[in-house]
Design a protein around this nucleic acid. Structure first.
Lengths: 329, 329
DNA sequence: GCTATAAATGAAAGCGCTTTCATCATAGGC
DNA sequence: GCCTATGATGAAAGCGCTTTCATTTATAGC
C-alpha cells in the first residue's frame, strides 16, 4: 500500500499539501491539486484510516450497542444507522449487550477502548447513574428508547405510554371491555410505560385495572404462549389481548389456533412494534408501529451534529407511535 | 486518558516493558509486572487501540459485508460472528452491499480502507474474477454462501442443491406429483442450485421439469404472492409448492388464505432457510434449515486461524441442510 | 513598481503505541 | 569462580498521518 509520503514525492509536493487535498482542509492551488490527485491515482493510494485516526484523534467510527444483533427490531435499526453513517464515510462497530447490566457495561467499555467517536446505545440494564457517569467522562453518546433524566438531552425515545394507550384504545373502541394484557419484563422502561398507557385507556372508559388479566412475559414468543395458556387455565374472561410486543402476540396467536380460538372473532389480539414479520401471522397482526428506522436515523443525526459538527435538519427527541390496524383486532 | 508513557513513568519502567505486560509478548519479572499493573490500575489506563493498530499493523477489526443488515437471516449471522470475535477482543465493522455489484465493491473498498485485518463477505453480485483479484491483493477474506472455484479454500457454503432436493423429496414422498416451484433470482448462485436440487428429486421420481410450474421470484415476500397468483391465474394444476426461501413461502401462504386454499390439505408449502419467523406462519412452515449460525461461526474461526494464527477446532467448508417438517407440508 | 495582505506551501513535531537491537543481570555448567 | 546461555529491561526508531508555525509566493492597492 502506498503511503502519503510516496504520493508527495511523486507529486513533488510536501506531505502537508497532500494531506490538504485529501481532507480538503485548506486551500490548495488547482494545478497542485491535480498533480496530487494524479499521483494518488497512479499509486492507487488510499489513506490509512488508522494513521488518520491517531493523528487527528478522530476514529470516524461509531459504536453501536444493542441488546441483540439478531431479531427483526435491531436489524432495522442497525441497517438505518449504518447507511446514514456510511454515506458520510464513517463506519459502525457493533456489539451486543444481551440485556445484561454487566455485559452492557463491558460492551460500552469495549467500544470506548476502540476509540469510537460516539456511541449509540440501546441499553436496558445499566443504571441511570452509570449513564450519567458516562456522560461526565466525556464520551459522546446517545441513548435510544429510554429516558434518563440526567442525560435527557441525549435520549431519543418513543412515547411508549401513548403506544400502550393506542393499542388498548383501539380495542375499547371496538367494544371490547375485558382486555387481557401481556407485558414485557416490568423492570424494562418501555414495558412499564406501555402498561401505563393501557391503564390510562381503561380509565378513560371507566374500567379499573384487573390484576387477573395481567401477565408479565419476557418479550419473547414463549411469553405470549405462556400468557395465553395462563389466562385460559385461570378461566379468565376476556375477549381481547394486548401484547407488549409482536413476538408475544405471535406466540399468543399460535396458541389461539391450537386451542381453536378464532382470531379475531373470539379473541382479538394486538401487538406492539410492527416488526417486519408482523404481517406474516395469520390473521395479520394489528399492532402499534414503532418507527425504529426514524429513530435510528435521528440517533445518527444527533451524532453527526454534536460530534462531527455537521449541519443536520431538525433533531427530534420523542417519537409518536401509531396504530396499524390489520386483521387480528 | 492516560497514555502508556505515564504508566511507565509511574511504574518506573520503560515504555517497552509496559507494552510487554499489556501484550504479554515477552517475559517480565513478576515484581515488575505487578508494579506496572498497579500503575495501570491507578491511572485507569486503557490502551489506545488506534495507536496499537498503527504500530502493530493490526487493527483487530474484522469487516463483515452482508446484503442487508436488516432481515432475520443476516441478523443471526452477524450475531454469531460478533460474539465469536468479541470473545477474543476483536471487533466487527459492518456494511451492507444490497445485492448490488457496485455497492458491494464499494463496501469492500470501504472496509479495506478501514484497515480490517480480514473480511467476511456475503456477496452476491461481484464477479468471481473480482474476488480472485481481491485474493491476489493480499486482503484476507472468507466468502459465505457462495462457491468460487478460484478461491475455493476461502468459501464456506451450504449444499444448496441438496437443500432443494430435500424440500422436493419431502413432498414427493408424501405423494405429491405436481409440484410448483418458486425460485429466487436465478442469477444468484443459491437460487439456481436449489432449483437444480428440485429437478434432481423430480427425476428420481421419473418426473420431468415442467416450465409452467416454475416461477422466478425475488426472495421477498411479494415474490411468493406474485408466484401463487401467477400459478392460479394460469390455472396450473399442482398440489404442492416449493419456495426457495421462507419469505416467499410466507407470501404464498398469505395468498392461499386469501383465496381460501387450505394449507396443507389443498396446497402443501415448503420453504427454505428456517428463519426465525418461520414458525410464526399459520400453519407453521415446513422448511429446510440453513445453519446460518454454524456458518457464521465457521467463518469467524477461519479468520481466527488464518489471520490471527489461533488454534481452532476442525474447519468445515460445506454444510448440509436439513428438512424441518412442521405443519405446512 | 513597491509594499501590505492574503493565499499556498513546506518543515517538523507529534499522535500512542510496538518492536528491534543492544545492554545488563542472573543463573547454571564445568 | 569464570564463562556462556538465557532472562529482563531500556533506548530509540518507526507506523502513516495531521497540524501548527514559519516561510514563500501571489494578489491587490496605491
Amino acid at each position: 500500500m502506498a503511503t502519503i509520503y510516496e504520493v508527495s514525492k511523486l507529486a513533488g509536493v510536501s506531505l502537508a499539501t497532500v494531506s490538504r487535498v485529501i481532507n480538503n482542509t485548506a486551500p490548495v492551488r488547482a494545478s497542485t491539486k491535480e498533480k496530487v490527485e494524479a499521483a494518488m491515482q497512479e499509486l492507487g493510494y488510499r489513506p490509512n484510516s488508522v494513521a488518520q485516526s491517531l493523528a487527528s484523534n478522530r476514529s470516524n467510527s461509531i459504536g453501536i450497542l444493542v441488546s441483540e444483533l439478531g431479531g427483526p427490531f435491531y436489524g432495522e435499526l442497525l441497517s438505518r444507522i449504518e447507511s446514514e453513517f456510511r454515506a458520510v464515510g464513517k463506519h459502525v462497530i457493533v456489539a451486543a449487550g444481551h440485556s445484561d447490566a454487566e455485559l452492557e457495561r463491558e460492551s460500552i467499555e469495549f467500544l470506548r477502548s476502540r476509540n469510537c467517536d460516539a456511541l449509540i446505545l440501546h441499553v436496558e440494564s445499566v443504571s441511570d447513574d452509570y449513564l450519567r457517569g458516562l456522560a461526565d467522562s466525556g464520551t459522546p453518546f446517545v441513548v435510544i428508547n429510554r429516558h434518563v433524566a440526567a442525560v435527557a438531552d441525549r435520549c431519543i425515545t418513543l412515547d411508549n405510554e401513548l403506544g400502550g394507550y393506542l393499542a388498548t384504545h383501539h380495542l375499547l373502541e371496538r367494544g371490547h371491555r375485558s382486555i387481557a394484557y401481556v407485558s414485557g419484563p416490568m423492570w424494562k422502561h418501555d414495558a412499564s410505560e406501555r402498561y401505563k398507557g393501557h391503564l390510562r385507556a381503561l380509565k378513560e372508559f371507566s374500567l379499573a385495572e384487573d390484576k387477573s388479566l395481567f401477565f408479565e412475559g419476557d418479550f419473547q414468543e414463549t411469553g405470549g404462549v405462556h400468557a395465553l395458556h395462563h389466562f385460559l387455565d385461570a378461566k379468565a374472561k376476556f375477549t381481547a389481548l394486548v401484547c407488549a410486543n409482536d413476538e408475544m402476540a405471535s406466540g399468543a396467536i399460535t396458541v389461539a389456533h391450537e386451542v381453536g380460538l378464532e382470531v379475531p372473532a373470539e379473541l382479538a389480539v394486538v401487538g406492539f412494534d410492527n416488526v417486519n414479520f408482523s404481517h406474516y401471522t395469520y390473521p395479520k397482526l394489528t399492532t402499534v408501529d414503532y418507527p425504529i428506522e426514524a429513530i435510528g436515523q435521528m440517533a445518527a443525526r444527533w451524532v453527526l451534529k454534536h460530534v462531527y459538527q455537521q449541519p443536520v435538519p431538525d433533531l427530534k427527541a420523542v417519537f409518536q407511535p401509531q396504530l396499524i390496524p390489520r386483521d387480528s383486532a
